[in-house]
């Protein structure tokens, strides 16, 4: 499943149990459970999925199938400053792809990866709906509008 192996602490396991219990361990609430767990852990490693599987009595394979189906769920931890570059059509025609390339070049990672020091990760997302500001980049909660490839260095400098 994932190359990252972690050991869950007891309090982590308790947290997962608390989440599944809050949805009465009902199978059709699985996606809501995964949302809550991802909110808590930042990602959904195999170990977390295994605990959910035990608690909710759903095969791990099925949970894995769901985690990998939806693009919102991730099995790799994001960087401390997750960078999301909008690749919606409006941003694309206004040069979003060049901005993405510039971030990749500056950080030396591909979309979907995290830098070695854990500071940054890059992902592309589909339309945040701020098309008036295209091309749009999100770093954490902060939105940058009308980003040009030349602005990338300056933006990254804020976080270094």
């Amino acid at each position: 499943m994932s190359s990252i192996k972690i050991k869950l602490k007891k309090q982590d396991i308790d947290k997962i149990k608390e989440i599944t219990a809050s949805f009465n361990n009902e199978e059709h609430e699985l996606i809501n459970v995964l949302h809550k767990c991802q909110q808590h852990f930042g990602y959904l490693p195999a170990e977390v999925q295994e605990v959910i599987s035990d608690e909710m009595d759903i095969p791990t394979a099925k949970i894995y199938g769901i985690v990998t189906f939806y693009s919102f769920f991730t099995m790799t931890p994001k960087g401390k400053n997750p960078i999301s570059i909008c690749m919606g059509t409006a941003c694309y025609v206004r040069g979003g792809e060049k901005v993405l390339d510039e971030f990749k070049k500056e950080l030396g990672i591909e979309a979907g990866q995290t830098t070695k020091d854990g500071k940054f990760s890059i992902s592309s997302l589909r339309c945040v709906g701020a098309c008036g500001l295209a091309p749009v980049v999100l770093i954490g909660e902060k939105t940058y509008g009308r980003v040009a490839p030349d602005d990338v260095k300056e933006i990254l400098a804020e976080y270094k």
């Binding site: 996606i31 995964l34 939806y70 919102f72 769920f73 589909r126």
Partner: peptide, 8 residues
């Protein structure tokens, strides 16, 4: 409310 998780 039910939440989607990013699938067109």
């Amino acid at each position: 409310l039910k939440y989607g998780a990013g699938a067109f």
